[in-house]
């Protein structure tokens, strides 16, 4: 009895100590579950998703974080995520929120300008650049480059020297090549093609680099004309008229086809110029050096 009472007597402080240790740890379980969704952990998880290029979910996590704490880097990253998701206008609106009182103002403006450029409405792009509200303090050179390129896309470059001098030394040769391509694209003339085809069927197509079609046109038109002539000569007037009609149809078709071939040729030149220049700009990231926190 004595021992038992001693045990009882001494066990209470020990039990209290156990409860002090175990109960908080049990509570910790629930707390840790909630901690996963804490602002800090949302930020960490968002950064992980961002680096995994899961931009949609990263933006969601960042938005949740921003409900609790302001962070310009995250606003920038949300804009970047939306840009990567192709939601250009939403992205621009996000960047606009960084235009004032932020350490990332210039970077945000650059991204904004880049997206404006990518929207292909170059007249609108130039009007934005002309408004000083959107100008950066530290990157005026990039704005000038993109401005000059927008003129090149619209074929509005008037001063070649001004255009070339807008670019850095290592870019000048490439830009000169693009400028010359735009200025002297080597278009074929539709009227010339039409006249050539009228004189010798198929010649207009050969002029437009469609040699096979040109030779086919030549053979068909002359074969049908000969058939018509031969049938008239042998008093097969009905067949003569049928072949004459067909010959006239092919003759007219050959002229129309030559004009069309020239249009295709010129359109292909424009397309090649556009895609080459866009590829170059994309590889240069539109001359923009992106911040290191973008997890490249």
């Amino acid at each position: 009895m004595y021992n038992n009472s001693r045990v009882k007597f001494h066990i209470y402080p020990w039990l209290s100590l156990i409860l002090l240790v175990i109960l908080p740890s049990l509570h910790y379980s629930q707390q840790s579950f909630n901690d996963i969704l804490s602002a800090e952990n949302r930020l960490k998880f968002g950064n992980y998703l961002f680096c995994q290029k899961d931009y949609l979910r990263a933006a969601d996590e960042y938005r949740e974080y921003l409900k609790i704490s302001n962070n310009d880097t995250l606003r920038f990253k949300i804009g970047y995520s939306l840009f990567k998701l192709g939601r250009f206008h939403e992205s621009m609106d996000n960047y606009k929120s960084l235009f004032y009182n932020s350490a990332l103002t210039d970077e945000a403006k650059l991204q904004f300008i880049k997206i404006k450029f990518l929207l292909n409405d170059f007249a609108d792009f130039r009007s934005i650049i002309d408004q000083k509200n959107y100008s950066t303090n530290n990157y005026p050179g990039i704005e000038t480059k993109l401005y000059q390129l927008s003129l090149l896309f619209d074929d509005l470059v008037t001063d070649s020297l001004l255009f070339i001098n807008s670019f850095d030394q290592d870019e000048k040769n490439v830009m000169l090549k693009f400028y010359m391509q735009r200025k002297y694209p080597g278009y074929k003339n539709e009227t010339t093609a039409g006249i050539l085809s009228a004189i010798i069927p198929g010649l207009g197509k050969i002029y437009a680099d469609e040699t096979g079609d040109g030779i086919t046109s030549f053979i068909l038109t002359y074969a049908l004309s000969f058939l018509s002539y031969n049938n008239f000569k042998n008093d097969h007037n009905t067949r003569g008229w049928i072949f004459a009609g067909l010959a006239a149809y092919f003759y007219a078709g050959n002229i129309y086809g030559s004009l069309s071939a020239v249009q295709n040729y010129n359109a292909a030149l424009n397309f090649r110029f556009d895609s080459d220049l866009r590829l170059y700009l994309s590889q240069k990231n539109y001359f923009i050096h992106e911040p290191d926190f973008l997890c490249k």
Binding site: V21, I22, S25, L26, Y28, S29, Q30, S32, F33
Partner: peptide, 9 residues
Amino acid sequence: SERLSAQNY
């Protein structure tokens, strides 16, 4: 406790 609770959450 910490490990167990981590597994728990």
